[in-house]
Simulated assay, not measured.
Amino acid sequence: MKTLSLVIKELNEMGILREYVVGSFGTNDPKYKVMGDPSNEVVNCACNHFETVGILCCHALKVLDNLDIKLIPSAYILKRWTHEARDGILEKHGLDARGNGDMDVTDRYREVCPEFVKIAVKGSQTIRRYEFIKKMILTINKSLDEMPLGGEFRRNLTGLSEDTSLIAKCTGLNKKDGRKGGKRHKSCLEKNKRK
């Protein structure tokens, strides 16, 4: 809907690139510069909506429409918006990130998080699975605390099953103490509120 209310106010051709100035029809709302390359089906808007949110902005869609590109180019359809988003294999610039040894902290975090979400979903289905997952989390957390940040981890945690000695070393769950007095603590706003 927003794309329909926009117009291209200026067009500057710079060789194969075109610079569009896109704004709202009949108003003095902000105008955005959008660079378009019709041969490669590439658009880049100054509002940086695609770079921050991962969805093309209305300005870029207006330029694609002006370039007579009716289907969104595959470069602008991120994996997180597709049916394959739950596969757990993260791709960066078309390459599988799992084999990349030069991954930074953010890339490693993005690769590990979906796997832990899958574990949490499976582990919360029954009480037995929940207790098993809690024990493993405590063990992994303790092992990570003992591991130096620059060194290699000497133990191999792959292929763990309920029979391994690592799981046998897991201690029971710590029971949390209940609240004393049976009442929850009130914030200062609740205390000052007139009844």
Rank of each mutant, 00 (worst) to 15 (best):
K195W: 04
K33F: 06
E41Q: 12
R179P: 09
A97H: 00
K169S: 12
A75R: 15
R184I: 14
E152L: 00
R194Y: 11
L4I: 08
V105G: 02
L17C: 04
K79Q: 14
C188I: 14
C57Q: 11
D145R: 14
L166K: 04
E190M: 07
C170A: 15
M1L: 05
P114V: 00
G26Q: 15
D68P: 01
C58S: 15
H93D: 15
G178S: 06
R154I: 00
E51K: 03
G178H: 04
C45Q: 02
S161D: 10
R86S: 14
K193M: 12
P30Q: 09
N44K: 07
E41K: 13
R179M: 10
R154E: 07
L144K: 09
Y109E: 09
G150E: 13
K9W: 14
M35Q: 08
V7Y: 08
G26F: 11
L11D: 03
L67Y: 09
F25M: 09
S143H: 03
L17V: 03
K70R: 12
I89S: 12
I69D: 04
S161K: 02
G101D: 00
K33Q: 11
K79V: 01
P148V: 00
K33I: 11
G99Y: 01
V22K: 09
I77W: 01
S24C: 05
T27P: 06
K175Y: 02
E111S: 02
D68V: 10
P73C: 14
Y109F: 10
I77M: 14
A120D: 07
M14V: 11
S165W: 06
R110L: 02
E146M: 15
P73K: 04
L61Q: 12
E152Q: 01
L17Q: 10
I72S: 07
E115S: 10
G123F: 01
N66T: 13
K134E: 05
S187R: 12
V117L: 01
V53L: 15
D29M: 09
R110S: 03
V43N: 01
G23Q: 13
S124D: 10
N174I: 13
G88Y: 05
H185Q: 10
Y32K: 11
K135M: 08
A168G: 05
H185A: 12
L173Y: 02
P73G: 08
L61I: 08
L6H: 07
M1T: 09
N48F: 07
D96C: 07
E41H: 09
T52A: 03
V7L: 13
K122W: 14
I16G: 11
L67Q: 13
K191Q: 07
L78Y: 00
D104Q: 00
G36M: 03
L166E: 09
K193I: 03
L90R: 13
P30Y: 06
D177T: 02
E19Q: 14
V21W: 03
K183T: 06
T52L: 12
V105N: 00
K135D: 00
R18G: 02
